[in-house]
């Protein structure tokens, strides 16, 4: 479903060339549960931003659902982001002045769906992530785990093809980490493609497939679980 051919990314802040990502080829199938891992600065976020169309690769081809994205304009890229990709961030990125419900509704407020339908779907999703009692709460009135669950519900709003989570448990304690991971994995069980970026071996080990990056290069791509934590 996601195909990367010799994708690379480099930055040139002030003349000095930084190769954030060296040429990578990668195929991710529908329904997969992939962990992207590696030390800080190894290029995990860069790769994820490219996968999520937030950033364009410097070189290489990226096919999403069989469509090459290299020739697309901002309007088309945004459309695909909206329809096929759901993001979950380390720091949740909820809007503080909106309620949980309004935050979840957000991805459809720039579409053509009637408001009542949006509200219904958002309420349903909040029930699904176990926050039925909290839909009118503002983020400040929610715990970290609850906030991340609101963010997951928001990411699911447009029934994305792929869920991209960048360090989703980075701001959570160990108990809520387990809860959030369980939620994400349950979604994967139901067929949701899940790509998880994490620098924590214990989290990465839970994935069915594990990609290890070091200095922008793939050093291992296990189609089985990550077994050897010394790799990174």
């Amino acid at each position: 479903m996601l195909e990367l051919h010799q994708i690379s990314k480099h930055y040139q802040p002030g003349g000095q060339l930084i190769e954030a990502l060296k040429p990578i080829s990668l195929t991710i199938k529908a329904g997969e549960y992939l962990a992207i891992t590696g030390t800080s600065g190894s290029g995990k976020s860069t790769l994820m931003n490219i996968l999520g169309l937030l950033d364009l690769p410097s070189r290489g081809d990226y096919l999403l659902d069989g469509v090459a994205i290299s020739s697309m304009n901002d309007q088309q890229l945004s459309q695909i982001r909206s329809e096929k990709i759901g993001f979950v961030f380390q720091s949740f990125h909820l809007l503080n002045h909106k309620t949980a419900l309004e935050n979840v509704m957000l991805p459809q407020t720039f579409g053509t769906v009637p408001l009542s339908d949006i509200r219904q779907r958002a309420t349903h999703l909040l029930q699904q992530v176990g926050l039925a009692e909290r839909i009118q709460h503002k983020p400040a009135e929610l715990s970290g785990g609850q906030r991340q669950r609101v963010a997951i519900a928001r990411a699911l709003m447009n029934q994305p093809k792929v869920l991209l989570a960048d360090e989703p448990t980075g701001n959570l304690d160990s108990q809520t980490t387990l809860e959030v991971m369980a939620l994400l994995e349950a979604l994967n069980q139901q067929g949701q493609t899940l790509i998880l970026v994490t620098h924590e071996p214990e989290i990465a080990r839970r994935a069915r497939r594990c990609l290890v990056l070091r200095d922008g290069e793939v050093v291992s791509d296990h189609l089985q679980r990550c077994t050897d934590p010394t790799q990174f």
Partner: peptide, 11 residues
């Protein structure tokens, strides 16, 4: 955030 969840520049 709006851009990430699918809002275009023109939106």
């Amino acid at each position: 955030l709006l851009r990430a969840i699918g809002a275009s520049q023109s939106y």
